[in-house]
Design a protein around this nucleic acid. Structure first.
Ligand SMILES: [Mn+2]
Ligand SMILES: [Mn+2]
Ligand SMILES: [Mn+2]
Ligand SMILES: [Mn+2]
Lengths: 158, 158
DNA sequence: CAATACAGTTAGCCTTTGCTAAGTTATTTT
DNA sequence: AAAATAACTTAGCAAAGGCTAACTGTATTG
């Protein structure tokens, strides 16, 4: 790379939108990679909790169907969840959440609900809101979550 | 599973929030899996485009630093991008976007900008807005994008 | 123009998240 | 109680996305 001639006669008002400093930039991507590590775990425990609540029990076959994934995939994921101490079960029997699993499920469910409500308050159609919420929920900070809540509340009381 | 006694004397007003039909539910997760397939490709081409625009060229070392990832990881990813016809380069030289790469970069950049502007309009602090936008951008439908744009515009003209 | 420093590549490893095919266990039906 | 069906598990494969260590090529500079 040739050394740039160090020109800047005008202070460059044109600057479209400079790149952020590279350490900050790197932090953005790191946060996303981080979210990706727990995303699927959260969706699983949330779903397992919902199934227990709404159907009385959480079975692999139901999870597979609702996630749109093979039973083998669910089996493997459940093994991981058990290893992490989030889920408990005996072979060939239905699934339960551990204490820690319940906590994670509760947090995920709440966050999911806030994002979904927000999108609806924004005027998004139901199907789209559900789809977008399923992905967005894992990338929303506490700060943004709080703002979403304020917004929905205000929008609904009018 | 024991057959439930088929009781529902009261029409159950309590129903917290029933599960969606399972095919719709599966579609939600499928959409997320889908987004995950292109997410990183989008971030790479967007970054390469930005580096070319702001620094004159896109070098692996810069990408690695900005992504917070090793050079080896960038090398492998670039090979994939070349295979997909999004990036062109000769060994040991800096990177260029193909026609298709430019298109993808433009779309990604625009979407990213809309989401970031929206979060700022919502009152989110700059650092947090940047982090959240980096993840959310890949999970936002056209419909939601349009709503975000309307909202920012309206919020800014006041 | 050598020597050194910097940039880029390659090989080999790991984890996650998906799949199919084949085997087991549990439940339901006859 | 046997047979048939449904549910679950296991084994083995692949792609994506990360890493480190070792190597190769390019640029700087004494
Ligand atoms: Mn969720
Ligand atoms: Mn989700
Ligand atoms: Mn982006
Ligand atoms: Mn991004």
């Amino acid at each position: 790379m040739i050394e740039p001639p160090d020109e800047s006669p005008s202070p460059c008002l044109c600057e479209a939108d400079a790149l952020p400093p590279s350490d900050q930039h790197a932090q953005q991507y790191a946060a996303v990679r981080n979210a990706h590590e727990t995303e699927l775990l959260e969706d699983y425990v949330e779903l397992i909790g919902d199934l227990i609540e709404h159907q009385g029990e959480a079975r692999s076959a139901d999870i597979a169907q609702r996630m749109g994934v093979s039973q083998a995939t669910v089996s493997k994921m459940v093994a991981r969840l058990k290893g992490l101490g989030l889920v408990a079960s005996k072979p060939y029997r239905s699934l339960f959440l551990t204490e820690r699993g319940e906590e994670m499920a509760a947090m995920s469910r709440q966050r999911h609900a806030i994002v979904l409500r927000f999108l609806r308050a924004l005027g998004i159609s139901d199907d789209t809101a559900r789809i977008d919420a399923e992905g967005m929920e894992h990338h929303v900070s506490e700060e943004t979550l709080a703002a979403m809540q304020r917004f929905s509340q205000q929008r609904e009381s009018s």
